[in-house]
Every structure is written in structure tokens, then in C-alpha cells.
């Protein structure tokens, strides 16, 4: 017989946990320290407690009558001001605070004179470079160039990779014939082959698009294969029983069913596409953030290098967030029925 478990919710913080402890301790005979561990998320220190997650205790060795006596205690309604406090998104306030701390830490490190400016430039110098390049419009140009290369590569790769992934997932013979060669293709280090790509496609947009595509197609293809293979055979049969055409099965079953995997793949691919564009620009380019890194290095201006790297990061982050937002809106059904 499995041990009965019960979840004790302690959402109201330390004070209520201590308060609740007085009520619960008689039932469970747990020491106060266990509750404190629970509240601050430390590992359990009591044999009856399975695990603590923030604000939650999972306990065993409890008889059903004890559980009943616990669950009959109605929670006290919170005063208005506490309900209002709980509505504030503390996470959103804390997030920029951490960023500010990191920035200050960086500034302290730069000001310490322990490292030369050439090694660790002061954040204010980097900020100054940002303002200069913002004013003359070159920052926007570089960002736009890199963005265009990355997104074009991602777009082309997604088209090819989802088509390939689809036939590999659906037709056995293609899986057998193509997969070894595709894995071979993926095994070529993109960074090593990028000079060759530049020779073949020139030092303009095309070569960067190819490199970005080469680095993003694989996660997209794997996501498609996994997504299509995960389509429930029962739902397939249900669609067939309803005389659905191949196109209808694709449109109404396979696409929505594979959507979680596809978006997961897209999340990986979208950040990689920026890496691909930058790698291409390292080898040979006249604009773009990757070019800016090389340019800064060439004129020994570390603040420009740091600025370009930071901008690459920001571009990646923004693209990732857009996909994450798309995911939240497309997959809202997955929240249904969860406690």
C-alpha cells in the first residue's frame, strides 16, 4: 500500500507558517524548524516530509483521519492590504534590480585599477560608445543587418528542415536513406566550414544566410521529427474514420499536435541563428554586429567589442522572448486542467 501523502500549503510566508505550525504541529508532530525549511525552500529535515518546495510540504505517514482534521480547517481570509501586496509582481521589480547590481559590480571591477581599461573597460565607456553609434545611426544599421541575416537563415532553414523532418517522420524509406547523410551534414563544424561558405557565396548577405541556416536547420528538423512521431495514433485513426483527407490530417491534427515540439525547436534555433550570422560576419563582412566585434578588436577598442557582444545578446534575447510569447498564446490550452 502506498504511503498516504498530504500537501500542506504555506503560501502566506513565514509568519503564517509559524501560525499554521501551531495548528498543525499537534496533528503531525513536526518541529518548527521543518516549517521554516519549507518556507525558505531548504531540503526536508524530518523523516515524514518527502520534499519541500517553496511554500509546500509533501508529507507521508499520515492517516486519513489526520488529513481530514487538517482539511476541515478553513483558511482565514486575508486583510485587504495583504491581498493588495500579493498582487504586486515582486519578480518584475527584482529582475532589473539584479541587472543593476551586476552593472555596478562591473563598474567596481573596472574602477579598481586591478585590470587595465583595455582588458575590462568601464561600463560608462561602453555606454558612451552606444550613444555615439546610436547618434550616427550605425548601431541600428549593424543590428538590422545581423537581424536580417539571422532571420533569413532561420526562415529558409525552417522551411527545409520541417519539410525534411516531416517526410522522414512519415516515410520509413526516407528515414533510412536520408538520416545518415543529414547527420553527416550536421557533424561538419559550421565554424570550420564558414570560410569555405564565404568563398562560395561571397562576403555579402548570402553567405551569412547560408551559415545561419546551416546552424539552425538541425534543431528544427529534430523537433519536427519528434513532434510528428508523437502524434497520437488513436487521433490519426479518429481522423481517418471521419474521412479526413491527407491535407486535413496535416492541417487539423499533425500541425497542432506537433506545435509544442516545433516551438521548442524554434526557441533553440532562433538564438542559434544569431550565432550563425555573427560567425559569418567574423570571417568576412563590412557590416553587422559580428563585423563590429572584429572592427573593435582591429582598432584595439575594447568598449566597442563589449558593446557589439552585448547587442548580439540583446538581439538573441528579444528573438527568444518573441518565440516564448508566441508559445504562451498558441499553447494556452496546456494550462487547462492543471491544479
Amino acid at each position: 500500500m502506498p504511503k498516504p501523502t498530504v500537501t500542506v500549503w504555506m503560501e502566506e510566508g513565514v509568519h503564517s507558517a509559524i501560525f499554521a505550525q501551531q495548528a498543525v504541529v499537534g496533528v503531525f508532530k513536526l518541529p518548527l524548524i521543518t516549517y521554516l525549511c519549507c518556507v525558505i525552500g531548504l531540503p526536508p529535515v524530518h523523516p515524514n516530509v518527502h520534499s519541500t518546495q517553496k511554500g509546500r510540504l509533501l508529507m507521508s505517514s499520515i492517516t486519513s483521519t489526520q488529513v481530514v482534521s487538517l482539511s476541515t480547517q478553513a483558511p482565514r481570509p486575508l486583510p485587504v492590504w495583504r491581498r493588495w501586496l500579493r498582487k504586486i509582481e515582486w519578480r518584475l521589480l527584482l529582475l532589473p534590480l539584479i541587472g543593476l547590481l551586476l552593472w555596478q559590480g562591473w563598474a567596481l571591477l573596472a574602477e579598481s585599477n586591478y585590470y587595465a581599461d583595455f582588458i575590462v573597460p568601464h561600463p560608462d565607456t561602453v555606454w558612451a560608445r552606444l550613444e555615439e553609434r546610436w547618434a550616427d545611426g550605425s548601431l541600428v544599421t549593424h543590428v538590422a543587418v545581423t537581424l536580417r541575416e539571422a532571420l533569413s537563415g532561420l526562415f529558409i532553414a525552417s522551411l527545409i528542415a520541417t519539410a525534411l523532418g516531416y517526410i522522414i517522420a512519415r516515410v520509413k524509406i526516407f528515414d533510412y536513406l536520408l538520416t545518415p547523410y543529414l547527420i553527416f551534414l550536421q557533424a561538419i563544424p559550421v565554424i570550420a566550414i564558414s570560410p569555405l561558405i564565404i568563398i562560395w557565396f561571397g562576403s555579402g548577405l548570402a553567405s551569412k544566410v547560408v551559415i545561419a541556416a546551416m546552424i539552425t536547420w538541425f534543431p528544427m528538423m529534430i523537433a519536427t521529427i519528434v513532434g510528428i512521431r508523437n502524434v497520437s495514433p488513436n487521433l490519426r485513426e479518429m481522423m481517418r474514420a471521419n474521412a479526413a483527407s491527407r491535407w486535413q490530417i496535416f492541417r487539423h491534427l499533425e500541425v497542432p499536435s506537433a506545435m509544442p515540439e516545433l516551438l521548442g525547436g524554434l526557441k533553440i534555433a532562433v538564438t542559434l541563428s544569431v550565432v550563425g550570422a555573427a560567425v559569418g560576419e567574423f570571417v568576412s563582412a563590412r557590416e553587422g554586429l559580428g563585423y563590429l566585434v572584429m572592427y573593435g578588436r582591429g582598432i584595439s577598442d575594447t568598449p566597442t567589442v563589449v558593446l557589439a557582444v552585448l547587442m548580439l545578446t540583446v538581439v538573441s534575447l528579444v528573438l527568444y522572448s518573441l518565440v516564448a510569447m508566441l508559445e504562451t498564446s498558441l499553447l494556452s490550452w496546456r494550462k487547462a486542467g492543471k491544479p
Binding site: 487521433l235 499536435s257 487547462a336
Partner: peptide, 17 residues
């Protein structure tokens, strides 16, 4: 399969999305 014939499966086979 024909649209005029409908098959209800042992499991509900609903689309979760």
C-alpha cells in the same frame, strides 16, 4: 471510411488543444 458511418472509440480520443 464514410462520413455517413460514425465510429465512437473505446477511448474518448478528443483533441486536447
Amino acid at each position: 471510411p464514410q462520413r455517413r458511418i460514425s465510429l465512437i472509440f473505446q477511448k474518448d480520443n478528443l483533441m486536447p488543444w
